[in-house]
Measured scan of single mutants.
Amino acid sequence: EAKQAFKELLKEKRVPSNASWEQAMKMIINDPRYSALAKLSEKKQAFNAY
């Protein structure tokens, strides 16, 4: 599932759970899995759940 892949990406890149969305994006934007969720709102939702 795309959300699961996105959460795994956050874990693998060691994005701190208290990081802001902007900080997290800088760490993950170059990974192909960043595109797993098409909409930015879906990415933010998955990030907030993380």
Rank of each mutant, 00 (worst) to 15 (best):
A38V: 11
W21K: 08
S20M: 03
L10P: 02
A38Q: 12
Q45Y: 06
N18L: 02
M27S: 09
A19M: 08
L37T: 04
A38H: 13
S41F: 00
F6Q: 06
E22S: 10
A49W: 01
A36K: 11
P16Q: 00
K39A: 11
K43S: 04
N30W: 08
K44E: 10
K3D: 10
A46Q: 09
E8Y: 02
E8C: 10
N18Y: 06
L10G: 03
A36T: 10
K13P: 01
I29D: 13
P32E: 09
K3E: 14
A5T: 13
A19I: 09
K39S: 15
L10Q: 03
L9M: 14
K13Q: 08
K13H: 02
F47Y: 07
R14C: 11
I28S: 08
K44Y: 04
L37Y: 05
S17M: 14
P32T: 07
L9E: 05
Q45G: 09
L9K: 04
N30G: 15
A46L: 14
K7E: 14
A36W: 06
N48S: 10
A38I: 08
Y34G: 04
A36D: 07
K26M: 09
L10S: 05
A38K: 14
L40I: 09
P32L: 01
Y50M: 10
A36C: 14
D31I: 00
M25W: 04
F47T: 01
L10D: 03
A38D: 15
M27I: 08
R14W: 01
Q4L: 10
P32K: 09
Y50H: 01
L10R: 02
S17G: 11
E8G: 05
F47S: 04
R14D: 12
N48G: 07
N18W: 09
A49G: 06
L37H: 06
S35D: 14
E22Q: 06
A5M: 12
L40M: 14
A5W: 00
K26H: 12
Y34D: 08
S35T: 11
E22G: 10
V15S: 00
A36Y: 08
A46G: 03
D31T: 03
S20T: 15
S35Y: 15
S41V: 06
N30D: 13
R14I: 02
Y50F: 01
W21Q: 09
N48T: 09
Y50S: 07
Y34C: 07
A38P: 15
A24W: 00
A2P: 03
Q23M: 07
K43Q: 07
F47D: 03
K39G: 14
A2Q: 03
A2G: 14
P32S: 12
V15M: 04
Y34W: 10
P32C: 03
N30A: 12
A5I: 14
S20N: 12
F6L: 03
K43A: 09
S17W: 13
K43W: 07
V15R: 01
P16G: 04
S35W: 13
L10N: 06
A49H: 04
K11I: 15
S35H: 13
M25A: 11
P16E: 03
K13S: 09
W21S: 05
D31A: 01
N48H: 10
S17P: 15
P16F: 00
N30R: 10
S17T: 13
P32F: 03
F47E: 05
M27D: 04
P16V: 02
N18M: 05
A2Y: 08
A19C: 13
K11N: 11
K43L: 07
A49I: 12
K11F: 09
Q45S: 13
Q4V: 11
Q4Y: 00
L40V: 11
Q4R: 13
K11R: 14
N18C: 10
I29E: 15
K7M: 14
F6N: 02
K39R: 12
I29A: 15
R14V: 04
Q23P: 05
K11S: 12
I29M: 15
K3A: 11
E1W: 02
K11C: 09
F47C: 01
S41P: 08
S17N: 11
E22D: 14
I28T: 09
D31R: 02
K39C: 09
P32H: 07
P16N: 01
K3G: 11
E42F: 06
A38N: 11
A49Q: 15
K11V: 15
A49K: 10
E8W: 00
V15K: 00
S17I: 13
K13V: 04
Y34I: 00
K11H: 14
R14F: 00
N48I: 07
K3I: 15
D31V: 00
W21E: 07
A19T: 07
K3Q: 12
P16K: 04
E12C: 01
I28V: 12
K43H: 04
L40T: 12
M27C: 04
S35L: 12
L37A: 04
K43N: 09
K7Q: 14
M25N: 12
A38T: 12
A2M: 07
A5Q: 14
S41L: 02
L9S: 03
I29C: 15
A36G: 13
S20D: 11
Q45V: 07
K26C: 06
S41D: 12
M25R: 15
S41W: 06
K39W: 04
K11G: 10
A5N: 13
S35G: 13
L37W: 01
E8F: 03
V15T: 00
P32N: 06
A24I: 02
M25D: 10
A36F: 10
M25P: 08
A24F: 02
N30Q: 13
I29K: 15
N18T: 14
A49N: 09
K39T: 15
A5G: 11
A38Y: 06
Q4P: 01
E12G: 04
K39H: 06
Q4W: 01
A2L: 05
Q45L: 10
K7G: 13
K13A: 13
Y34E: 07
N48Q: 11
E12N: 08
K11W: 13
L9T: 04
K43Y: 06
K11A: 14
P16L: 01
K26Q: 15
L37R: 02
N18F: 06
I28P: 10
E22M: 10
E42N: 02
P16C: 04
Y34Q: 02
Q4H: 07
E22A: 09
F47P: 06
S41M: 02
A19Y: 12
W21F: 15
V15I: 09
N48C: 02
N48F: 03
I28Q: 02
E12L: 02
M27L: 13
K44H: 13
E1A: 03
L40S: 10
V15P: 05
A46S: 08
D31W: 00
P16S: 06
I28K: 08
Q4G: 09
F47L: 09
R14A: 12
A2W: 03
Q23W: 04
Q23N: 08
K44R: 09
I28W: 01
A5D: 09
S41N: 06
I28C: 13
L37S: 05
Q45R: 12
V15N: 01
